[in-house]
Design a binder for these strands. Sequence first.
DNA 1: CATGAATGAGCATTCATTCAT
DNA 2: AATGAATGAATGCTCATTCAT
Lengths: 196, 196, 196, 196
Amino acid sequence: MNKNKPKYKQIIDAAVVVIAENGYHSSQVSKIAKKAGVADGTIYLYFKNKEDILVSLFQDKMGQFIEKIEHETTSGQSAEEKLLTLVETHFEQLAADHHLAIVTQLELRQSNKELRYKINNVLKKYLAVIDNIVDEGIQEKLFRNNLNRRLVRQLIFGMMDEAVTNWVMKEQKYNLEEQAQDVHSLIVYGLAESSK
Amino acid sequence: MNKNKPKYKQIIDAAVVVIAENGYHSSQVSKIAKKAGVADGTIYLYFKNKEDILVSLFQDKMGQFIEKIEHETTSGQSAEEKLLTLVETHFEQLAADHHLAIVTQLELRQSNKELRYKINNVLKKYLAVIDNIVDEGIQEKLFRNNLNRRLVRQLIFGMMDEAVTNWVMKEQKYNLEEQAQDVHSLIVYGLAESSK
Amino acid sequence: MNKNKPKYKQIIDAAVVVIAENGYHSSQVSKIAKKAGVADGTIYLYFKNKEDILVSLFQDKMGQFIEKIEHETTSGQSAEEKLLTLVETHFEQLAADHHLAIVTQLELRQSNKELRYKINNVLKKYLAVIDNIVDEGIQEKLFRNNLNRRLVRQLIFGMMDEAVTNWVMKEQKYNLEEQAQDVHSLIVYGLAESSK
Amino acid sequence: MNKNKPKYKQIIDAAVVVIAENGYHSSQVSKIAKKAGVADGTIYLYFKNKEDILVSLFQDKMGQFIEKIEHETTSGQSAEEKLLTLVETHFEQLAADHHLAIVTQLELRQSNKELRYKINNVLKKYLAVIDNIVDEGIQEKLFRNNLNRRLVRQLIFGMMDEAVTNWVMKEQKYNLEEQAQDVHSLIVYGLAESSK
DNA sequence: CATGAATGAGCATTCATTCAT
DNA sequence: AATGAATGAATGCTCATTCAT
């Protein structure tokens, strides 16, 4: 579809705000259209259906999210440093956009199973980034070489995700970014070669 | 309501199966009633409304789940051993009831925010169990004493939860229980005193 | 049915109160049963169905109502005096039982057409009483002899009924019985021989 | 709402017919929609809910009804003549639209108390018209000047209303308009100065 | 491209009535 | 006679999607 036309972005951005403010189940297409300043029918010139708005929203926002993290973690750091950067950037980005945080951590999970599979596909790219860093850590003999990498990357993601979800459910009342250090420690020590 | 009448359990059990097989949004009350072998109206003698079936289902099943884990982790083990038991029991119970696993990991999360808060309340008891074990580990000088316990228990839960969700989304095609060891290692090393 | 058993009256009286306090559409059989202190099923030992409670209620209460009026108007009065007694007794009885007034003037009229026909049958007896007085008035040469008696009795009933309904809808905030004189005057002058 | 769009009238007119033919409680929204030749959902573009169809129907039809009567009674007649015109026009209009007569005299009264209050508000305008004529009659020394005008206008309305209701309940088998004279006589003599 | 009026499938819940005890 | 748990039919309303303009 016309992913670069201005209305495409207008609709995506309207959707984030509407969903964050009204919740997933009260975010009718007509409400999103109104917020975006277009007619209901116009939505369907840019998106196949309502679910497509959500998938596109996630791909768009998460695409930028992951790109940013990829970019931040490509410098000449050690795997340990990269991991810290990863966690920090993850937290930083969601802390910077409260609406987006609500949508990704709470509202979008209320979508149906099918949509969640599509969302999971988007996340694969992120898991790959994590995987690479873990791999580097193993090469650097920083991490144990008998790790179940497939599992490890999930666990790392699970920790960060749970930390962010909690912060959102606690209405973002504490500082999320301050927790990056502790999460990082648990991961690094948890994977470390020296352990044992 | 009449939580000990046989029909109460019949309906809860029917709901688990129907939701697991049809997905949350295709699980009409009439479908649950039919599976339970009662009339539609009978549902409302035992539950306030449809959402109440879900809340009750979660409280009921998770209540047993947590009780089992509490029971398994109260013997005279070290904190390290208890943690292994915790992860193993967590995985074991969900692996043993595929329907329940689908419901808790995927379908129940599609419910609205309000319900999710109620679900979170049930989970608090589980987080307390984890917390106690972490505390013991600190007492035993097994774990660092400068841990952010509130965060740590979330991270531990997040790891297990993500591992199970992945297993469910991969259609339970691999053995979940075999991952308990690796998850346990990551946690124990991650929290360990000797690290550093 | 068992019209003289105490439970019959219990249920009728409970129905009047429940309907007056909750309105016709919020007066479920179970609510009436509870107020009457009997089980839901017991209602059906004394009444064919819910509509039968209402018809019986009306027959019962209106029976007494009409009897009282018949009794009050049989003394050796002139037709004019009898008419005053009629209006006064009509207003008096409804003013004396606020619950009944609400039920007959507002709530029972929300019933379906079929029930209203049955109610109308009960009223025929009342119309006959009015008719007799009008007839006497004509005999006494007090009223014109070319009156359409069928119509006149309806109009008299219509006036009283409207006066009471208004009083009920104004939440019975003024004194209904004081209006009897004025209503009586309008009727008597309206029917009078001397007019013309 | 869009009160001048053709579909608004279509739906109102369909509602009158459907309600008259099926009764209030058997007049499902879908039945009205079908008769009006629109989709069920279209109803809700023009009316807030089912009750709003009824209120609007009454306001619409009674608005015209009252306007017609106001118009007919503004010529240079005496109060006595105006009263006759009023009664005649009242009967004439309802006799001319049997469906509407059934709806206003029987079906609409089955609605809940709340709706009846709204209906009563519409009738206030009609009562004011009656009131003005009575007042004129008093000025003209045709009627007694000690009349309780508030009550009198109710009684006049009560008579006409009861006459029409009876005619409807007798399945409109006799000629309603012929009764106008008699009703008029009763009113005029009833209020007359010469009486007494 | 854009509009927005119109569509119509889909479903939780109530409550009068029954009947085994 | 009395109970009250169980029944199951019946319906107003929402909202994603379409399509004539």
